[in-house]
Protein backbone atom coordinates (compact mmCIF):
# COMPACT_ATOMS: atom_id res chain seq x y z
CA UNK A 1 0.00 0.00 0.00
CA UNK A 2 1.25 3.43 -0.84
CA UNK A 3 0.35 6.23 1.50
CA UNK A 4 0.78 8.93 -1.06
CA UNK A 5 -1.67 8.01 -3.81
CA UNK A 6 -4.90 9.14 -2.30
CA UNK A 7 -5.84 12.53 -0.97
CA UNK A 8 -8.44 13.02 1.77
CA UNK A 9 -10.45 14.82 -0.92
CA UNK A 10 -11.07 11.48 -2.59
CA UNK A 11 -13.39 10.69 0.30
CA UNK A 12 -15.47 13.84 -0.03
CA UNK A 13 -18.97 13.44 -1.41
CA UNK A 14 -21.76 15.78 -0.32
CA UNK A 15 -21.54 18.70 2.09
CA UNK A 16 -23.04 17.67 5.46
CA UNK A 17 -26.39 18.90 6.71
CA UNK A 18 -25.08 18.89 10.30
CA UNK A 19 -25.42 22.08 12.35
CA UNK A 20 -22.42 24.43 12.12
CA UNK A 21 -20.03 23.57 14.94
CA UNK A 22 -21.21 19.96 15.23
CA UNK A 23 -18.51 17.61 16.54
CA UNK A 24 -19.30 15.16 13.77
CA UNK A 25 -17.48 17.39 11.25
CA UNK A 26 -14.29 16.62 13.12
CA UNK A 27 -15.00 12.89 12.96
CA UNK A 28 -15.71 13.06 9.23
CA UNK A 29 -12.54 15.02 8.51
CA UNK A 30 -10.42 12.70 10.62
CA UNK A 31 -11.89 9.67 8.85
CA UNK A 32 -11.08 11.14 5.43
CA UNK A 33 -7.50 11.83 6.52
CA UNK A 34 -7.09 8.42 8.11
CA UNK A 35 -8.38 6.61 5.02
CA UNK A 36 -5.96 8.59 2.87
CA UNK A 37 -3.06 7.90 5.20
CA UNK A 38 -3.82 4.19 5.05
CA UNK A 39 -3.66 4.36 1.27
CA UNK A 40 -7.20 3.08 0.89
CA UNK A 41 -9.33 3.69 -2.19
CA UNK A 42 -13.00 4.62 -1.79
CA UNK A 43 -14.18 1.34 -3.34
CA UNK A 44 -12.27 -0.71 -0.75
CA UNK A 45 -14.20 0.73 2.20
CA UNK A 46 -17.73 0.10 3.43
CA UNK A 47 -19.13 2.43 6.06
CA UNK A 48 -22.18 0.89 7.71
CA UNK A 49 -24.09 3.40 9.79
CA UNK A 50 -27.04 3.48 12.12
CA UNK A 51 -29.68 6.18 12.49
CA UNK A 52 -29.26 9.65 13.95
CA UNK A 53 -27.13 12.65 13.02
CA UNK A 54 -24.06 10.41 13.24
CA UNK A 55 -25.65 7.85 10.90
CA UNK A 56 -25.51 10.38 8.08
CA UNK A 57 -21.71 10.17 7.97
CA UNK A 58 -21.71 7.83 4.98
CA UNK A 59 -23.80 10.32 3.03
CA UNK A 60 -20.76 12.62 3.19
CA UNK A 61 -17.90 10.12 3.12
CA UNK A 62 -17.16 8.85 -0.35
CA UNK A 63 -17.02 5.07 -0.17
CA UNK A 64 -19.50 2.22 -0.34
CA UNK A 65 -22.07 3.09 2.30
CA UNK A 66 -24.93 1.26 3.88
CA UNK A 67 -27.18 3.40 6.07
CA UNK A 68 -29.22 0.88 8.03
CA UNK A 69 -31.64 0.91 10.96
CA UNK A 70 -31.52 2.51 14.38
CA UNK A 71 -29.04 0.58 16.50
CA UNK A 72 -28.32 -2.07 13.89
CA UNK A 73 -25.09 -1.05 12.23
CA UNK A 74 -22.93 -3.62 14.03
CA UNK A 75 -24.64 -6.85 12.95
CA UNK A 76 -24.82 -5.62 9.35
CA UNK A 77 -21.17 -4.54 9.41
CA UNK A 78 -20.08 -7.93 10.78
CA UNK A 79 -22.04 -9.67 8.03
CA UNK A 80 -20.35 -7.50 5.38
CA UNK A 81 -16.88 -8.20 6.74
CA UNK A 82 -17.48 -11.93 7.14
CA UNK A 83 -18.71 -12.13 3.55
CA UNK A 84 -15.77 -10.21 2.15
CA UNK A 85 -12.65 -10.11 4.32
CA UNK A 86 -10.89 -7.95 1.72
CA UNK A 87 -13.08 -4.96 2.55
CA UNK A 88 -12.25 -2.36 5.18
CA UNK A 89 -15.45 -2.21 7.21
CA UNK A 90 -16.31 0.68 9.49
CA UNK A 91 -19.46 0.77 11.56
CA UNK A 92 -20.58 4.10 12.90
CA UNK A 93 -23.34 5.66 14.90
CA UNK A 94 -24.09 7.69 17.96
CA UNK A 95 -24.54 7.02 21.65
CA UNK A 96 -28.28 6.47 21.38
CA UNK A 97 -27.82 4.17 18.42
CA UNK A 98 -24.96 2.12 19.80
CA UNK A 99 -25.38 2.21 23.57
CA UNK A 100 -29.18 2.40 23.75
CA UNK A 101 -31.19 0.53 21.16
CA UNK A 102 -28.12 -1.29 19.85
CA UNK A 103 -26.41 -2.00 23.18
CA UNK A 104 -26.96 -5.74 22.96
CA UNK A 105 -25.21 -5.93 19.60
CA UNK A 106 -22.35 -3.81 20.96
CA UNK A 107 -21.46 -6.21 23.74
CA UNK A 108 -21.59 -9.23 21.48
CA UNK A 109 -19.62 -7.57 18.69
CA UNK A 110 -16.94 -6.84 21.29
CA UNK A 111 -16.62 -10.47 22.33
CA UNK A 112 -16.99 -11.85 18.78
CA UNK A 113 -13.97 -9.79 17.71
CA UNK A 114 -14.71 -9.60 14.00
CA UNK A 115 -12.13 -7.35 12.31
CA UNK A 116 -14.17 -4.16 12.00
CA UNK A 117 -13.86 -0.67 13.45
CA UNK A 118 -16.71 0.89 15.40
CA UNK A 119 -16.70 4.68 15.59
CA UNK A 120 -19.24 6.13 18.00
CA UNK A 121 -20.01 9.84 17.93
CA UNK A 122 -20.95 10.28 21.58
CA UNK A 123 -22.66 13.57 22.40
CA UNK A 124 -24.79 12.51 25.38
CA UNK A 125 -27.98 13.63 23.70
CA UNK A 126 -30.45 12.67 20.95
CA UNK A 127 -29.87 15.23 18.24
CA UNK A 128 -31.96 14.33 15.22
CA UNK A 129 -35.12 13.86 17.32
CA UNK A 130 -34.45 17.19 19.03
CA UNK A 131 -32.71 17.03 22.34
CA UNK A 132 -33.99 14.07 24.37
CA UNK A 133 -32.00 12.22 27.02
CA UNK A 134 -29.59 9.61 25.68
CA UNK A 135 -28.05 6.52 27.30
CA UNK A 136 -24.85 8.45 28.05
CA UNK A 137 -26.59 11.57 29.40
CA UNK A 138 -25.56 12.27 32.99
CA UNK A 139 -28.00 11.64 35.84
CA UNK A 140 -30.16 14.71 36.33
CA UNK A 141 -30.04 15.67 32.64
CA UNK A 142 -33.08 17.82 31.91
CA UNK A 143 -34.69 17.26 28.52
CA UNK A 144 -38.18 17.03 26.99
CA UNK A 145 -38.37 13.34 27.95
CA UNK A 146 -36.92 13.90 31.43
CA UNK A 147 -38.29 17.28 32.56
CA UNK A 148 -37.46 16.45 36.18
CA UNK A 149 -33.96 15.42 35.27
CA UNK A 150 -32.91 11.93 34.15
CA UNK A 151 -33.07 9.34 36.91
CA UNK A 152 -30.86 6.87 35.05
CA UNK A 153 -27.13 6.56 35.44
CA UNK A 154 -25.17 6.82 32.18
CA UNK A 155 -23.90 3.84 30.18
CA UNK A 156 -20.13 3.69 30.39
CA UNK A 157 -19.14 2.30 27.01
CA UNK A 158 -15.39 2.15 27.64
CA UNK A 159 -15.96 0.08 30.78
CA UNK A 160 -18.45 -2.21 29.01
CA UNK A 161 -15.91 -2.77 26.25
CA UNK A 162 -13.11 -3.39 28.75
CA UNK A 163 -15.20 -5.79 30.84
CA UNK A 164 -15.81 -7.90 27.73
CA UNK A 165 -12.14 -7.72 26.74
CA UNK A 166 -12.58 -5.67 23.60
CA UNK A 167 -9.32 -6.14 21.73
CA UNK A 168 -8.80 -2.43 21.00
CA UNK A 169 -10.39 0.49 22.90
CA UNK A 170 -9.76 4.20 22.53
CA UNK A 171 -11.46 7.52 23.02
CA UNK A 172 -10.98 10.61 20.92
CA UNK A 173 -12.30 14.15 20.85
CA UNK A 174 -13.67 16.10 17.90
CA UNK A 175 -11.72 19.10 19.16
CA UNK A 176 -8.42 17.27 18.56
CA UNK A 177 -8.51 16.10 14.96
CA UNK A 178 -4.81 15.32 14.84
CA UNK A 179 -5.08 12.76 17.66
CA UNK A 180 -8.43 11.51 16.33
CA UNK A 181 -6.93 10.82 12.90
CA UNK A 182 -4.05 8.91 14.46
CA UNK A 183 -6.50 6.86 16.55
CA UNK A 184 -8.56 6.04 13.45
CA UNK A 185 -5.47 4.84 11.60
CA UNK A 186 -4.64 2.55 14.50
CA UNK A 187 -8.23 1.38 14.93
CA UNK A 188 -8.60 0.43 11.27
CA UNK A 189 -5.19 -1.26 11.25
CA UNK A 190 -6.02 -3.36 14.32
CA UNK A 191 -6.85 -7.00 13.49
CA UNK A 192 -10.03 -7.49 15.47
CA UNK A 193 -12.89 -5.41 16.78
CA UNK A 194 -11.83 -1.87 17.61
CA UNK A 195 -13.98 0.60 19.52
CA UNK A 196 -13.28 4.28 19.04
CA UNK A 197 -15.60 6.35 21.20
CA UNK A 198 -15.45 10.01 20.18
CA UNK A 199 -16.56 12.85 22.40
CA UNK A 200 -18.34 14.69 19.61
CA UNK A 201 -20.25 17.62 21.11
CA UNK A 202 -23.73 18.67 20.07
CA UNK A 203 -23.73 22.44 19.96
CA UNK A 204 -27.48 22.65 19.39
CA UNK A 205 -28.97 20.49 22.13
CA UNK A 206 -26.12 20.40 24.63
CA UNK A 207 -24.15 23.60 23.96
CA UNK A 208 -23.12 24.08 27.58
CA UNK A 209 -22.43 21.93 30.61
CA UNK A 210 -23.25 23.07 34.11
CA UNK A 211 -20.21 23.19 36.35
CA UNK A 212 -20.37 24.62 39.90
CA UNK A 213 -23.56 26.43 38.99
CA UNK A 214 -22.05 27.99 35.87
CA UNK A 215 -22.66 27.14 32.24
CA UNK A 216 -19.44 26.20 30.47
CA UNK A 217 -19.24 25.84 26.67
CA UNK A 218 -19.24 22.18 25.73
CA UNK A 219 -15.92 22.22 23.80
CA UNK A 220 -14.28 24.22 26.53
CA UNK A 221 -15.58 21.79 29.16
CA UNK A 222 -14.20 18.74 27.37
CA UNK A 223 -10.86 20.43 26.69
CA UNK A 224 -10.57 21.16 30.35
CA UNK A 225 -11.53 17.74 31.63
CA UNK A 226 -10.20 15.24 29.08
CA UNK A 227 -6.98 13.55 30.17
CA UNK A 228 -4.68 12.49 27.35
CA UNK A 229 -3.26 9.06 28.11
CA UNK A 230 -0.48 9.62 25.58
CA UNK A 231 1.00 12.26 27.87
CA UNK A 232 1.51 9.64 30.55
CA UNK A 233 4.76 7.79 29.64
CA UNK A 234 4.14 5.11 32.26
CA UNK A 235 0.68 4.19 31.07
CA UNK A 236 0.51 0.57 29.81
CA UNK A 237 -2.44 0.06 27.45
CA UNK A 238 -1.99 -3.72 27.57
CA UNK A 239 -3.01 -3.82 31.24
CA UNK A 240 -6.71 -4.17 31.96
CA UNK A 241 -6.18 -3.18 35.57
CA UNK A 242 -4.33 0.01 34.58
CA UNK A 243 -7.04 0.83 32.05
CA UNK A 244 -9.80 0.44 34.59
CA UNK A 245 -7.89 2.49 37.14
CA UNK A 246 -7.57 5.34 34.63
CA UNK A 247 -11.30 5.26 33.89
CA UNK A 248 -12.09 5.47 37.60
CA UNK A 249 -9.49 8.15 38.18
CA UNK A 250 -10.79 10.42 35.40
CA UNK A 251 -14.46 9.48 35.35
CA UNK A 252 -13.98 7.99 31.86
CA UNK A 253 -12.77 11.37 30.54
CA UNK A 254 -9.61 10.10 28.87
CA UNK A 255 -8.33 10.24 25.30
CA UNK A 256 -5.91 7.98 23.48
CA UNK A 257 -5.62 4.21 23.37
CA UNK A 258 -7.07 2.84 26.59
CA UNK A 259 -6.53 -0.85 25.97
CA UNK A 260 -5.32 -3.25 23.31
CA UNK A 261 -4.44 -6.90 23.03
CA UNK A 262 -3.60 -9.23 20.19
CA UNK A 263 -6.05 -12.03 20.81
CA UNK A 264 -7.10 -13.89 17.66
CA UNK A 265 -9.92 -12.30 15.70
CA UNK A 266 -13.11 -14.22 14.88
CA UNK A 267 -11.85 -15.55 11.57
CA UNK A 268 -8.66 -16.93 13.08
CA UNK A 269 -10.76 -19.34 15.15
CA UNK A 270 -12.45 -20.81 12.10
CA UNK A 271 -11.28 -23.75 10.06
CA UNK A 272 -11.95 -23.84 6.34
CA UNK A 273 -13.25 -20.29 6.18
CA UNK A 274 -12.41 -18.48 2.95
CA UNK A 275 -10.07 -15.52 2.78
CA UNK A 276 -11.59 -14.49 -0.54
CA UNK A 277 -14.85 -12.63 -1.19
CA UNK A 278 -17.68 -15.06 -0.58
CA UNK A 279 -19.30 -13.89 -3.80
CA UNK A 280 -16.78 -16.18 -5.53
CA UNK A 281 -18.10 -19.15 -3.55
CA UNK A 282 -21.79 -18.71 -4.34
CA UNK A 283 -21.79 -21.73 -6.60
CA UNK A 284 -23.26 -25.20 -6.71
CA UNK A 285 -20.84 -27.81 -5.32
CA UNK A 286 -19.87 -30.40 -7.94
CA UNK A 287 -21.88 -33.62 -8.19
CA UNK A 288 -19.27 -35.61 -6.33
CA UNK A 289 -19.45 -33.26 -3.36
CA UNK A 290 -23.25 -33.30 -3.44
CA UNK A 291 -23.29 -37.11 -3.53
CA UNK A 292 -20.91 -37.10 -0.59
CA UNK A 293 -23.30 -34.91 1.39
CA UNK A 294 -26.28 -37.02 0.38
CA UNK A 295 -24.54 -40.18 1.61
CA UNK A 296 -25.25 -39.21 5.22
CA UNK A 297 -28.96 -39.51 4.49
CA UNK A 298 -28.79 -43.02 3.00
Amino acid sequence: MSATLVSPKAFVSEYPTWCPGCGDFGVLNALRSAAARLGLQPHQIVVVSGIGCSGKINSYFNSYGLHTLHGRSLPVAQGVKLANPELTVIASGGDGDGYGIGAGHFMHAVRRNVDITYIVMDNQVYGLTKGQTSPTSPTGFVSPTTPQGSADGPVRPLRVALANECSWIAQGFSGNIRQLTELMVQAISHKGFSLLNVQSPCVTWRPTILENGEKVGVYEWFKKHLHNLEEDPDYDPTSKAAAYAKLLEHGDLVTGVLYRDERPSFREHLKGYTDRPMADLATKPDNEALEGLAAQFR
Binding site: V48, T68, P75, V76, V80, A83, N84, G104, P277, M278
Partner: peptide, 22 residues
Protein backbone atom coordinates in the same frame (compact mmCIF):
# COMPACT_ATOMS: atom_id res chain seq x y z
CA UNK B 1 -22.40 -17.43 13.09
CA UNK B 2 -24.41 -17.92 16.25
CA UNK B 3 -25.88 -14.46 16.64
CA UNK B 4 -26.87 -12.89 19.95
CA UNK B 5 -30.50 -12.76 18.85
CA UNK B 6 -32.63 -13.06 15.75
CA UNK B 7 -32.43 -9.32 15.09
CA UNK B 8 -28.71 -9.66 14.69
CA UNK B 9 -29.03 -12.94 12.79
CA UNK B 10 -31.07 -11.53 9.93
CA UNK B 11 -29.03 -8.32 9.84
CA UNK B 12 -25.79 -10.27 9.52
CA UNK B 13 -27.37 -12.25 6.70
CA UNK B 14 -28.41 -9.00 5.01
CA UNK B 15 -24.89 -7.61 5.44
CA UNK B 16 -23.41 -10.78 3.94
CA UNK B 17 -25.76 -10.61 0.95
CA UNK B 18 -24.96 -6.94 0.47
CA UNK B 19 -21.28 -7.90 0.26
CA UNK B 20 -22.03 -10.60 -2.32
CA UNK B 21 -22.40 -13.81 -0.36
CA UNK B 22 -25.45 -16.00 -0.54
Amino acid sequence: VQAEDEISAILMAIGANYAGAR
